[in-house]
Simulated assay, not measured.
Amino acid sequence: MNLPNKLTVLRIIMVPFFVFFMLTDTGGAANKWIALVLFCIASLTDLLDGKIARKYNLVTNFGKFMDPLADKLLVCSAMICMIESGQLSAAFVIIIIAREFIISGFRLVASDNGVVIAASYWGKFKTVSQMAMVILLIADFGGAFDLVCEALIWISLALTIISLVDYVAKNRQVLTQGGM
């Protein structure tokens, strides 16, 4: 397993620890900051694995499939935790997760036909906006940052919908190839 794939696996392993610190009070006030550090490190592994894979020609089918899945697991877990804290509405999170299930379904159908679909730029923009939103929501600085968080919530939602439409439009042949 190459380094980018190891970073992807590390990101997946970090998710339960992140969720633990988001949802428990074991460490008191430090939990928020521990969760924030874990989320930031996991988010950085996403940036690093892609850069390393492209720079050293280490792109693999495992990475093309698991990297976006690891991102979804990290970001969706964070957003689900934020429903409980009242920072995000369930409707918002349901829309985000529905998009992820639709894209995952497309990837599974494509995979059955021997096709691996890499993430698009719209999907990458969506992921970055969601990660930035999560970071600011966890940090909860208040004041003007509340407006920034609100803007990022709406930007994330818009990019979620745009990336879904783009993805389906660019890959609609997957549905016809699969005998559906």
Rank of each mutant, 00 (worst) to 15 (best):
T127D: 05
T60S: 12
L88C: 08
G123T: 06
F141R: 08
A30V: 00
S104T: 13
D166C: 10
F125W: 03
V168A: 14
K126Y: 06
S104R: 08
Y167W: 11
A110T: 11
K124A: 03
T8C: 00
C149Y: 02
D49G: 01
L137R: 09
G105D: 10
S111N: 13
L136C: 06
A70H: 09
V168T: 10
K32F: 08
I13Y: 07
L10S: 05
P4I: 03
D112T: 03
G86K: 05
T60D: 01
T176Y: 13
L7V: 01
S89F: 12
E84G: 12
S129Q: 01
G179P: 09
N171Q: 10
A158T: 04
I161A: 13
F145I: 04
I162V: 15
M131P: 03
M131N: 11
M180Q: 01
S111W: 12
I94N: 05
N171M: 05
D112Q: 14
M14V: 13
L164K: 04
A90S: 12
V15G: 11
V116D: 13
T45G: 00
C40F: 14
L10Y: 03
A98N: 07
I34A: 07
F125R: 01
I153Y: 02
W33G: 02
K6H: 00
D140Q: 15
T24I: 08
W122Y: 11
V93F: 06
V174D: 04
W122N: 14
V115F: 09
E100W: 09
G50P: 03
V165K: 14
D49K: 02
V165C: 11
S43E: 06
K170R: 14
K126V: 04
K6N: 02
G27S: 15
V15R: 02
A29S: 14
I102D: 04
M133I: 05
F92G: 00
P16L: 10
M66W: 06
F101V: 09
D46Q: 03
F106W: 13
I162D: 02
A144R: 13
F62H: 02
K51Q: 14
G123W: 11
E150Y: 15
I135L: 06
L73D: 04
E100I: 06
W33R: 09
S77W: 01
V109I: 12
D112C: 15
A132G: 00
L36E: 11
L147A: 14
V174I: 15
K51L: 04
I96W: 07
V75W: 00
S89G: 15
W122F: 15
R11Q: 01
F145M: 05
G86W: 13
W33E: 09
R99T: 01
G123K: 03
M22T: 07
I34F: 14
I12G: 06
A91Y: 08
S163D: 02
I135E: 01
A90I: 11
R11K: 00
L3R: 02
D49F: 03
G50W: 02
L48C: 02
C81W: 07
V19G: 04
I138F: 14
V174C: 05
L164W: 08
L136P: 06
K124V: 05
A35S: 15
P16C: 06
P4H: 07
G28S: 10
D49Y: 04
I94Y: 12
M131L: 10
I80W: 10
